[in-house]
Design a protein around this nucleic acid. Structure first.
Lengths: 202, 202
DNA sequence: ATAAAGTGAGTAACTAATTACTATCTTTAT
DNA sequence: ATAAAGATAGTAATTAGTTACTCACTTTAT
């Protein structure tokens, strides 16, 4: 795939680094991706990475930026593609699932960052991302209630939490089975149950 | 809390080691719990650990055994304490949530083990545990269908996956908020939505 | 007395980061 | 147009710090 071309402009090199980390995270425990492993996959020496990033944390920060941008823009596009809140929730769910199926390492990295004890920069970025993500879900659920599509007595916060958890559950199942494609297959079936849980009686 | 008594019988020392790991996993990223950190918390030198375990992996294996035993027995007890499948599902959910609230490091360790690339012993144990756990959920859901409590057209596999995912979602929310007790507070509200999703129309 | 439990000082392997040096592009002066 | 000069990107070896694990020796309980 990658041609391992040497002497790329710095910006391009940084972009490739980020994509490489995302790729590696799909194959191994994100928390033990070493700078040596990243460099090897790129066909560079380990030291070369530090020409483009001041330290490893900065690499992770760049990855989180990449993720936040791509995920949110994809999700926003999905929301805009339909016109009812219920349909938007489903489109958002499927867009997210599609993203995860393409980049299975991503949710694992996010979850892994959240586990860190202190207040690392990447961790804060994940919190921000999930916050912004949650806003969108919350907005759709409230619009759905107003439109009579969803149960007006629905506990919005719980519904938001379950929306995210549902995807997290799919990720875990795919880890269990060692089969990423499973996510795409199971997603509609699982979402159907969720949709029923938040729906109005009719 | 622990009195850091020296010269304990081997079996007792092993038990304390396991509990210490579970404790540490609640405070820091499980994947960077070092043998030095475990020993320090126990008031022992690092070398002493290797009197009782051949290697670090064996410690993790013992922890997984501990988890599997305690979680399943607790869940089974909850199931036996009520008499309808629907009530049993709820009791099982709450028992699991209670366990997680007491030992927040546990789900994070399980998830972390699943991430490893190869086929480590602890990973296999987690797969076995989740398999056995899933069986119980599946059985209850099918009994619920037969009893007319649950939607007879319900997709059982998806419902099982969502059951586990729901808890995983609660764990993630608590990591986000940095507040474990949140799990117990949110659990009933989230379960209510799930219950509605799998229920018969009436 | 002796076997089990713990100590403390090691080791080899690995990790992120640094550095002196080299190769390759880009700009500029003539 | 092109040679010289400067800037940028990559190399290879090395660093200090960590990690899991070992072992000769000491302490303790029975």
């Amino acid at each position: 795939m990658a041609l391992h071309v040497k002497h790329l402009p710095a910006e391009e090199r940084r972009a490739i680094t980020v994509e490489t980390v995302v790729e590696l995270a799909a194959e191994q425990n994100p928390s033990d991706i070493t700078t040596a492993a990243i460099a090897k996959r790129m066909g560079l020496t380990q030291g070369a990475l530090f020409r483009h990033f001041p330290n490893k944390d900065a690499i992770l920060r760049a990855v989180m930026e990449w993720v936040a941008e791509r995920l949110l823009s994809r999700v926003d596009k999905a929301i805009r593609s339909v016109n009812s809140p219920g349909a938007a929730l489903e489109a958002m769910f499927m867009a997210h699932v599609g993203f995860v199926a393409e980049h299975p390492g991503v949710p694992r990295m996010l979850f892994g960052e959240l586990q860190h004890a202190g207040e690392t920069a990447p961790k804060r970025m994940v919190q921000t991302l999930i916050g912004r993500y949650g806003e969108r879900v919350r907005k759709l659920i409230e619009a759905g209630k107003a439109a009579g599509e969803l149960d007006p007595a629905l506990d919005t916060e719980a519904a938001v939490s379950l929306f995210v958890g549902t995807i997290q559950g799919l990720v875990m199942q795919s880890l269990l089975a060692g089969d990423v494609q499973r996510i795409s297959r199971d997603a509609p079936r699982v979402f159907a149950i969720y949709r029923r849980g938040i729906g109005s009686g009719r």
